[in-house]
Computed example of a mutant assay.
Amino acid sequence: MRKGWIAGKSIAALGVAFMLSACAATYQNHGFAPSELDLAEITVGVDTRDTLAETIGEPTISGVVGDDSWFYVGSRWRHFAFRAPEVIDRQVVAVSFAEDGVITNIERFGLENGRVVTLNRRVTETNIANVNLITQIINSVGNVSADQLVGN
Rank of each mutant, 00 (worst) to 15 (best):
M1R: 12
M1T: 12
R2C: 10
R2H: 12
R2A: 12
K3P: 05
G4R: 12
G4N: 13
K9I: 14
A12H: 00
V16G: 01
A17W: 04
F18M: 13
L20A: 05
L20V: 03
L20K: 04
C23R: 07
C23W: 06
C23F: 07
A24M: 12
A25F: 00
A25H: 01
T26W: 10
Y27A: 09
Q28R: 12
G31W: 02
F32C: 03
A33I: 07
P34S: 03
S35F: 04
S35V: 02
E36I: 10
L37W: 10
D38Y: 10
D38W: 05
L39S: 02
L39G: 01
A40I: 02
I42H: 00
I42R: 01
T43F: 08
T43G: 06
T43V: 11
V44W: 02
G45P: 01
T48W: 01
T48M: 00
R49V: 08
R49P: 01
R49W: 05
R49N: 06
R49C: 05
D50T: 10
D50W: 04
T51E: 06
E54S: 06
E54Q: 11
T55W: 05
T55Y: 03
T55D: 04
G57M: 04
E58F: 14
I61W: 08
S62V: 07
V64S: 12
V64A: 14
G66W: 01
D67S: 09
D68T: 03
W70D: 11
F71P: 04
S75L: 09
R76I: 13
R78I: 02
F80L: 14
A81Y: 09
F82Y: 12
A84P: 10
V87H: 09
I88C: 01
D89E: 15
D89Y: 12
D89R: 11
R90E: 10
Q91S: 13
V102R: 03
I103P: 00
T104P: 03
N105E: 13
N105H: 08
I106R: 00
F109N: 00
F109M: 02
E112S: 15
N113P: 03
G114W: 05
R115A: 15
R115T: 14
V116P: 06
V117S: 13
T118S: 15
T118V: 15
L119K: 07
R122N: 14
V123S: 15
V123W: 15
E125D: 14
E125Q: 15
N127Q: 04
I128P: 14
A129L: 13
A129R: 12
A129P: 10
V131P: 08
N132C: 10
T135S: 14
I138Y: 09
I138C: 05
I138H: 07
I138M: 13
N139E: 15
S145D: 06
D147G: 09
Q148R: 09
L149A: 12
V150E: 12
N152C: 09
